[in-house]
Nucleic acid binder design. Sequence first.
RNA 1: GCGGAUGUGGUGGAAUUGGUAGACACGCCGGAUUCAAAAUCCGGUGCUCUUUGAGCUUGUGGGUUCGAGUCCCACCAUCCGUACCA
Length: 855
Amino acid sequence: MTQREDRYNAADVEPRWQRLWDEEGAFEAPRGGDIASPYYVLEMFPYPSGRIHMGHVRNYTQGDVIARYKRAQGHTVLHPMGWDAFGMPAENAAFEKKSHPATWTYANIDAMRSQLKRLGPAIDWSREFATCDASYYGKQQALFLKMLEAGLVYRKNATVNWDPVDCTVLANEQVIDGKGWRSGAPVERRELTQWFFQITQFADELLEGLDTLEDWPEKVRLMQANWIGRSYGLQAEFARTDTGESIPVYTTRPDTLYGASFLAIAADHPLAKALSEDNAELAAFCAECAAGGTSEEALEKTEKRGFDTGLKVRNPLVPDMELPVYVANFVLMDYGTGAVFGCPAHDQRDLDFARKYGLPVTPVVLPPEAEADSFAIGDEAYTGPGTLYNSGPLDGLSAEDAKAQAIDIAEENGWGTRQTTFRLRDWGVSRQRYWGCPIPVVHCPTCGVVPVPKQDLPITLPDDVTFDTPGNPLDRHPTWRKTCCPECGGEALRETDTLDTFVDSSWYFLRFAGLDEAEAFDKDAANQWMPVDQYIGGIEHAILHLLYARFFTRALKTCGLVDHEEPFKRLFTLGMVCHETYKAADGRWVMPEEVERQGDKVVLLETGETVTVGRSEKMSKSKKNVIDPDDIIAQYGADVARWFVLSDSPPERDFLWSDVGLEGAWRFIQRVWRVAGQCLKASEAGARPSKLEGDALALHRHTHKAIDAVTTALEGMQFNKAVAAMNSYINGIDAGITGDGAAWALREAAETLALLMGPMAPHLAEELWAELGKDERLYQAAWPKADPALLVEDSVTIAIQIRGKLRDTIDVPKDLDKGALEERALAQPKIVAALDGQTIRKVVVVPNRIVNVVI
RNA sequence: GCGGAUGUGGUGGAAUUGGUAGACACGCCGGAUUCAAAAUCCGGUGCUCUUUGAGCUUGUGGGUUCGAGUCCCACCAUCCGUACCA
């Protein structure tokens, strides 16, 4: 054995173990055959933006700790990695750097893979793929066709952001303050025919399925439930007073029909369009409503405006009540029927609208404690529960009962029906972009939309495309579109829309589990590993990605391709790693490493120019507020980088980046190395001595308490607590102890240090394990078990309070009974002095905890 | 706007889920060691004051309780999402 170095030399140790793990195929999961106790650990795969940043390091380190820990617990672990490689940034890079999206993307993947490997994760790299590989997206095209066949895919018109100068569709992110990001032109909303997945068909299932996801964070289930937004209400017909034609209206508050004061329809409602034809003013208003982006945030934040059409409709529940019909910018054609009635007294938005246009405000729900004569609506609508009044046949009912009653009346009289409505909309998957999965259909002038036959897949992207003009390069490619109709053989055109990248990430976990040449995934293998036992990723994916993956799994089950309904058994959501942003005077974003803080100002290192400091937000390539881990790994090593990201914040909480504490992580890793070496030197291997006492017993106990604490922390994914427990452990190890059993207890401590460090600092742990002379690798070693008998304390410290204020503490035997405890507490000199003879009204005694004297 | 979360010393955070607030670290201060430095080791460190003691303290303001960081109500700030960023 070579001379032990005084310092843990990461530069030497870490690459050596990484090479060995690789050579030994240490983390390759078995393919085929029976798998004993399978456990699938998956972190959300990264978008290859260029370089790894600390957000990635945090995410993948945490996943790796779980993968290694589960393996030590005896599971066969699958822990794969791949790349979510299609998407807009590659096209932007192509535009800016005149390189091809594929070149840029694959170069990024190579760079990020080697960065990631330097962290030493226990990943099965043999299963790696990128979603932009034709071998992946071709299989996705096959899945698309299956879903098309199953009736889960259809086309309809939908609104997009339109840049009228560049004549191109914009993503919401490319709309800044209502203007196109490159042209600066005010954005318009425009309708296009688009492909949709029928996610709403599964709305009930997706909502009810949330109840089965017991190991998901409650907040994510709640967010998804609110997003799906199931509500029941009334769809009622409001007849026009002029023509008698009826306008269908959906409402969740039919109980407030007597308080109605107007009807509002969407600007793109068929009636609004019809009326616009001979009303120039209305047409202008509707055109104004079409200005601005399509994002919900933008729509909801714009000032609520309306246009009185002059039409009137009759309230079907209150026949002598006539309501004016407005066109309003806050009514959405996508939700309900695109028409609502307004009850200003009990809806804030309606109230604001009514005040603005001078419409009546009639309260019809009386709050529990209020008087009918004195109750009035000011600037705030009343949306709580109460009793109906001013409401004819509904008077005296609770709001909830009145709602049901109103629906019954509507159904009896034939002017309305009970209806369940979802906030959830069908998933629009069409993208007018190049760098995505081509939708495998053909448009034939005679046969219409025709699916591409399976044997013709994959439909690959052409390489010879240009990005110097805005718009979809597939549209202007000279030949790519041109093809023959698979049905009639005549000339036809390919679909040029590509799929939303969320489709790519909705089934990648299945392909990792069941990599297959011919099919999207091997069904048996997928069934063996799925559902993913532990899925880990950022909280920003709480709704869209997770909901789409859940939908996709159910859709594939409908197609008979999988047996399970939910893709992710346990979910853990991580907080963001955030950093402030810096913007130079010319408007470009600047990386943290390019600037320096000088007093109150932050300046560019190169020029000394002052930069604008923006708020702290999640690290992202687009705003350049990223910290690259390479410098940290080069200076301190992977184990220190890993230890550092695990040590500070609880993983679910956001982490404002700061490298304060990095030195501390380095010192700790060194300390473990040193202390383990000292233990080893003073130790001897062998059977546990029959009798342990004194220092040896104390160390033995200390070791088992550490095992218990670290195990509990890792089970709960409380890595910062595992780190604290390791600190306490090492603080309590004195390698200088002697006497009976000391050598054995020190050996146990050295082994335990290696084992407990294993998931978190695997290189250091593996090196220590080899030093202990073990034949097996640490990654093959079993997790230690704490002996419960060693964890019990025989005395406890009791706090003594007077009127809830701490006055003294006493040590007493564990489980001392109430009477004895009270007696001991009251006899304490400090307590006697503090009481000073005052009358005791009551003494609260909680055994093993506290005594509170009330005077 | 709407939905979800978070808020504790100079800093990151802990608190047996209603029972001693500040574990464990970082930072800082002091000491040992050293020719010196680094590293290491030991001690101190919530704030205030009249300092062997007392008072205050978990974003702000109320409430429930013998007792509240923890439960309830209202508010403030920050972060995430808001369906074409991924």
